[in-house]
Nucleic acid binder design. Structure first.
Lengths: 227, 227
DNA sequence: ACGCGGTTGTGAACCGATGCACAAAGTCAC
DNA sequence: GTGACTTTGTGCATCGGTTCACAACCGCGT
């Protein structure tokens, strides 16, 4: 078992978070017909330093050739495999408001590896509507979706007020990976992963830096800050 | 200048990224009529450890009272001020596809401190349409928006292929803070901040951990992994 | 006036991630 | 086959962030 180069236990979180970006860069290169790439070039395409890229890739194994670089297709496959994208992950989106609606139709969602198998909503007035080719189902279908479709990932696109209830329902049905768009913290049992995407948080972080810049530069002629 | 408690230069990035969450938790407490809170309680509401919370807050100044805790309103104000939310930030959304449409209508976007002042698109067929009460404008309006409306933050919701062009246009018009929803890396000059939100990346990170769990547990009966 | 329970603020140890610099290892030309 | 050149993989120093543990401090009851 120690001979398997991918048997590496414990890839750093920071590295895992960058692998999708590397994969995207590799896909772009492949589409342009490029078959081989150096760490310097790939790092530039992914927006990181080459040393960081090489160290990241070294956690996966030795897939490069010294003096030459990396074979694009092979490296892309290895990253895909490490990320678990060689199998299909059934995804359900809960909450068919503005955001859920857009997510259901968002093409980037259906990239390799993921398949939206169900749309759900608590509101009986919305259940039954067809969105992006799928009929909206009631929350009671969750358990069946997990056992019959192998549903593994849930996306919460509800208002904050109902997000915890929806989350509890997902967990109860057996979903252990959740992507949360609602602006609130979710409490989940051990073994369940939650990642949060929050537009308003990102804007506030930008505002902090923008304010810092406005105060530092003499061009603070806009909406002058109160003294 | 050293007497000003907010003159602290260099609040760690990790801390800044958590301030919005603290602010949200405080707002929730205030709505429930709670006027005082301990670091332990606030940390629980924000999903962090109390020691981390206290250290984060210590970068802003000493706004707590030993033996008592923090006054909710006062602390919320101090965080708002540090984040630059006591002034209004005019925001423009570029790209009125599915996602841009949803963002324009998303209420969470219009939280305190931010105001969507313009929607833009490159496609002449979309320009002129009214979305969420605003008429979609052409990209050529950008410079006027910056000088007349004080536009400071741009949101890119276009396909990846046109994201860099849109980004260049924003920067040329004078926008120095950009929130990018397109799945690609943007190159910008020094002094411009870019934050990226990528749905597909988040899903892939979840998939990595999900696969890890599936391999570790005996319940790997789903879509069995290839040997 | 004074001690006691309780909570903050922070110095110091710890831990993971980043950047540097170079030895190891491969290709290519001849 | 050999030597020059190129690029990877990695040991090591460094840095930023997290956690621990406790002294400083506040308010209250007596």
């Amino acid at each position: 078992m120690s001979a398997d180069p991918s048997a590496r236990r414990g890839i750093p979180d920071a590295t895992v978070a960058r692998l999708p970006e590397y994969l995207r860069a590799l896909t772009g290169l492949a589409e342009r017909g490029i078959t081989s790439v150096s760490s310097e070039e790939l790092a530039a395409a992914a927006g990181v330093r080459s040393a960081k890229l090489r160290k990241d890739l070294s956690y996966l194994g030795s897939y490069g050739v010294r003096g030459v670089g990396y074979e694009v297709d092979h490296l892309a496959y290895q990253i895909s495999r490490e990320l678990g994208l060689t199998q299909d992950w059934p995804v359900a989106i809960v909450g068919m408001g503005n955001l859920g609606h857009a997510l259901a139709a968002y093409s980037g969602f259906a990239t390799r590896g993921f398949r939206v198998v169900a749309l759900l909503d608590q509101d009986p007035a919305i259940v039954g509507q067809e969105i992006a080719g799928l009929a909206v189902q009631p929350m009671s279908e969750l358990t069946a979706l997990v056992s019959e479709q192998g549903l593994a990932i849930g996306v919460i696109a509800t208002p904050a007020a109902s997000a915890q209830d929806v989350c509890d329902a997902l967990v109860a049905a057996g979903v252990r990976s959740i992507l949360n768009f609602a602006p609130c913290v979710l409490v989940v049992p051990d073994g369940v992963d939650v990642r949060k995407v929050d537009l308003s948080t990102e804007l506030q972080i930008l505002a902090f830096h923008e304010q810092r810049k406005a105060l530092a530069s003499p061009a603070a002629l806009r909406k002058a800050v109160a003294p």
